[in-house]
């Protein structure tokens, strides 16, 4: 999903940055406001930032395809912090990775942030909210969010490449070819991400119901799953 330096024409790179930047800035304001109002949630924000940083730079081998890829951690961050703060975390993480680890790029920063921090975060959070409203258990919503956020991130990367580089071919044909090429590696990792996201969200809710309630995890019908919230 890390589109490398120079892959996108500069006009596309600038357009992607212009689209991603408002999400990152609004998320930063949300983080500041939340941290000032409730200092108790700062460690959760720090934990999510560190987790997304490590996980999104962790190449995992997938024997089916013979290639490596990394999970994103963005579904977990979007559920626990909300999508906009997750977009800000993505922006900071991808900036460090581009500057220090030759992972991604500065010209493609906006595109990578939009794919992971906006498309991935909102897709994951949307799936979680929809499934919870339908009355599914916490673990099911979190697992679906983890998997969908991962796949949506890669779908977004494929769309970015298709829109920028399709040339004479149709965007749809190019998108489908690139997205399909991601799938043998990314589907097994989506299952892994589903398990980790479900485990982490369940863990936070059971061990720190106070923080879970403050972060809005009790806003859907099955409030009884958050201990102490009637």
């Amino acid at each position: 999903m890390h589109i490398a330096e120079g892959i996108l024409p500069l006009t596309w790179a600038a357009a992607n940055t212009a689209v991603a930047l408002p999400f990152v800035l609004k998320g930063a304001r949300d983080i500041k406001a939340r941290a000032e109002a409730e200092p108790g949630v700062k460690p959760l924000m720090g934990l999510m930032g560190a987790a997304v940083f490590v996980v999104s730079a962790l190449p995992i081998p997938v024997p089916i395809s013979g290639t490596c890829s990394h999970p994103t951690g963005i579904g977990m961050a979007a559920i626990l912090l909300k999508p906009l703060p997750a977009a800000t975390i993505t922006g900071v993480v991808l900036l460090f990775q581009a500057l220090l680890m030759a992972h991604g790029g500065l010209t493609t920063w906006g595109a990578n942030v939009f794919n992971m921090g906006v498309i991935g975060a909102f897709a994951g959070y949307g799936a979680f909210a929809a499934l919870r409203r339908l009355g599914l258990p916490l673990w099911a919503g979190a697992a679906a969010a983890g998997a969908l956020a991962d796949l949506a991130t890669y779908g977004g990367a494929a769309l970015t490449l298709a829109l920028a580089l399709h040339g004479e071919q149709s965007v749809w044909t190019v998108w489908l070819a690139i997205f399909a090429a991601f799938m043998p590696t990314q589907v097994p990792l989506a299952f892994l991400e589903a398990a980790v996201t479900a485990g982490m969200v369940n863990f936070v809710v059971s061990r720190r119901p106070d923080i879970a309630a403050r972060m809005g995890l009790a806003m859907w019908p099955r409030k009884e799953e958050v201990p102490g919230v009637a």
Binding site: M1, H2, I3, A4, E5, G6, I7, L8, P9, P59, T67, C68, S69, H70, H103, G105, T107, A157, L161, L165, H166, G167, V174, A177, I178, A181, F182, T185, Q186
Partner: peptide, 19 residues
């Protein structure tokens, strides 16, 4: 990694090389 195996390969096919 898929960043090289997919992204850079398709980009090269479509006429863009990574810097």
């Amino acid at each position: 990694g898929v960043d090289a195996a997919v992204v850079q390969r398709y980009a090269a096919d479509l006429g863009r090389e990574a810097w």
